[in-house]
Simulated scan of single mutants.
Amino acid sequence: MAESTYTVKGMTCGHCVSSVTEEVGQISGVRQVDVDLPTGKVTVTSDAPVSQEAVRAAVTEAGYELVAS
């Protein structure tokens, strides 16, 4: 298992959390997505490491911005 944490900008409510969780959760190998709305932290648990670009694309698809780490 691999775990990575990202910061997402622009989330303000539960719908935002659902959108990001759904899009990131569709990445191949992702097992769990945990979003902390107050901080914007998104923790991705997956079978193998997931590329930051795949996460960025999913977050963008959901309508938000992945902050560069």
Results as ranks from 00 to 15, higher is better:
56 R>N: 07
44 V>A: 09
27 I>L: 15
18 S>C: 03
15 H>F: 12
54 A>C: 05
66 L>M: 13
35 V>E: 01
58 A>W: 08
48 A>L: 09
16 C>T: 08
6 Y>N: 01
4 S>D: 04
24 V>E: 02
57 A>R: 14
15 H>M: 12
42 V>F: 01
62 A>E: 10
20 V>Y: 02
57 A>H: 01
34 D>G: 00
43 T>Y: 02
21 T>G: 08
42 V>I: 09
33 V>K: 01
50 V>R: 00
15 H>C: 14
8 V>D: 03
45 T>L: 00
50 V>I: 15
68 A>L: 10
57 A>I: 06
19 S>Y: 00
19 S>G: 11
42 V>W: 02
56 R>M: 09
20 V>F: 04
61 E>L: 11
60 T>P: 03
13 C>I: 12
55 V>T: 08
53 E>Y: 06
28 S>P: 07
2 A>W: 15
40 G>A: 10
4 S>Y: 01
62 A>W: 06
43 T>H: 04
54 A>P: 00
19 S>C: 07
39 T>G: 07
45 T>F: 02
25 G>R: 13
14 G>A: 12
46 S>A: 15
41 K>C: 01
41 K>P: 01
56 R>D: 12
3 E>N: 00
38 P>V: 08
17 V>A: 11
60 T>V: 09
19 S>Q: 07
58 A>C: 12
30 V>S: 08
15 H>I: 10
1 M>E: 13
27 I>D: 06
62 A>T: 08
15 H>E: 11
65 E>H: 11
31 R>L: 09
65 E>K: 14
60 T>I: 03
15 H>R: 15
16 C>D: 06
20 V>I: 11
62 A>Y: 12
44 V>F: 09
14 G>M: 11
69 S>K: 15
35 V>P: 02
11 M>P: 05
14 G>R: 02
14 G>K: 10
2 A>K: 10
64 Y>G: 00
53 E>L: 13
29 G>E: 11
66 L>Y: 09
5 T>I: 06
6 Y>E: 01
44 V>L: 08
47 D>G: 06
51 S>R: 10
68 A>I: 04
67 V>S: 14
33 V>I: 10
20 V>T: 03
29 G>Y: 12
40 G>Y: 07
5 T>N: 04
8 V>G: 03
44 V>D: 06
13 C>A: 07
51 S>V: 12
47 D>E: 14
8 V>A: 05
3 E>G: 00
46 S>D: 05
14 G>L: 06
32 Q>S: 06
2 A>G: 11
43 T>G: 00
1 M>G: 09
49 P>Y: 10
63 G>I: 13
2 A>P: 02
57 A>G: 00
30 V>K: 08
17 V>F: 06
69 S>T: 08
3 E>Q: 03
24 V>D: 03
50 V>K: 03
22 E>A: 15
17 V>R: 04
34 D>P: 01
33 V>H: 00
65 E>P: 03
10 G>F: 15
58 A>Y: 06
50 V>H: 03
9 K>S: 14
19 S>V: 01
15 H>P: 01
33 V>F: 01
10 G>K: 13
50 V>P: 00
4 S>I: 02
7 T>A: 04
57 A>L: 09
64 Y>H: 13
4 S>L: 03
54 A>R: 11
38 P>C: 13
32 Q>H: 08
5 T>G: 04
